[in-house]
């Protein structure tokens, strides 16, 4: 009788030990805690778990020198850390002015804004998961912590992101259209700079201001093309460059 009791106690202790071990192992593989965490704590842990992600962050536009840390986009808690970073507000808190305004006026931007409450932001930033791309969908595609839209990645990467939702032929046409628009804008920029250089005194305050205006409006064309924003391709871009050329000639005549 006593032996049977001892056997049962041993059996229960053994079972509890195994259960404890299983729970401990499961917890060890899961998120250790909910936070809050400091940026250095995030980097310390994720350097082991996601070394490629940390490498991308260190080499990207949000590198440590930029002053942007993990918590800038993800917050300091594990809960909804990805959801926070996927939403546009995470980007527009810092990226103001033409960069975000051109996007917000585009069809993608309007759709993204009016349907934000219907979107499941828990989904990864991958093809087919979002009806209209937000900033992070294109620039931090599929967890990329460098800039996926960076010029040095080449047009193929940008086209690949667009083809995730649009037909390849349509994307090719839009890219060709955008390339021509930038070519024309570059001709205007070149003409303006050459006109200023030809002036008797090219260092006047007025001409310096007009030189900056040329660069600013050329960049607007780029934002208009990149964000498919007609107002920036046109009103804030091409005609604004035309106005610069007229005013430069008027100033040096």
């Amino acid at each position: 009788m006593a032996a049977a009791v001892i056997y049962r106690i041993r059996y229960i202790v053994c079972l509890l030990s195994m259960l404890s071990l299983a729970v401990h192992t499961a917890l060890a593989n899961e998120i250790p805690a909910q936070g809050p965490f400091t940026d250095s704590e995030c980097v310390s842990c994720h350097s082991d778990r996601n070394p490629e992600l940390i490498r991308q962050w260190r080499n990207g536009p949000h590198d440590p020198a930029s002053g942007v840390g993990c918590s800038s986009c993800h917050g300091s808690l594990h809960a909804d850390a990805n959801v926070k970073a996927r939403k546009n507000q995470g980007c527009t808190n810092c990226h103001e002015g033409p960069a975000s305004h051109s996007y917000s006026k585009s069809k993608h931007g309007v759709l993204n804004r009016i349907e934000a409450h219907e979107q499941d932001w828990r989904k990864p930033l991958k093809s087919g998961n979002y009806r209209a791309p937000g900033s992070a969908y294109c620039h931090l595609h599929d967890g990329d912590h460098d800039d996926t839209m960076s010029a040095d990645r080449g047009p193929e990467v940008r086209q690949w992101i667009c083809v995730g939702c649009h037909s390849p032929r349509y994307v090719r046409e839009q890219f060709a259209n955008g390339r021509r628009q930038l070519d024309i804008a570059d001709l205007k920029l070149t003409e303006g700079k050459q006109l200023i250089a030809s002036a008797a005194n090219s260092q006047t305050k007025e001409l310096s201001k007009l030189r900056q205006s040329l660069i600013y409006h050329r960049r607007n064309v780029l934002y208009g093309v990149g964000h498919q924003s007609p107002d920036y391709q046109w009103w804030h871009g091409q005609p604004a460059l035309d106005g610069d050329l007229i005013r430069i000639r008027d100033a040096i005549e």
Binding site: R180, I184, Q238, P239, A251
Partner: peptide, 23 residues
């Protein structure tokens, strides 16, 4: 459709004061 290659905007071939008025 779309961007007309080389297309100049309205009030391109004008003087600066006329451009100011246009804007």
């Amino acid at each position: 459709i779309g961007f007309y290659e080389g297309q100049a905007s309205a009030f391109y071939n004008v003087s600066a004061i006329e451009r100011d008025y246009f804007e």
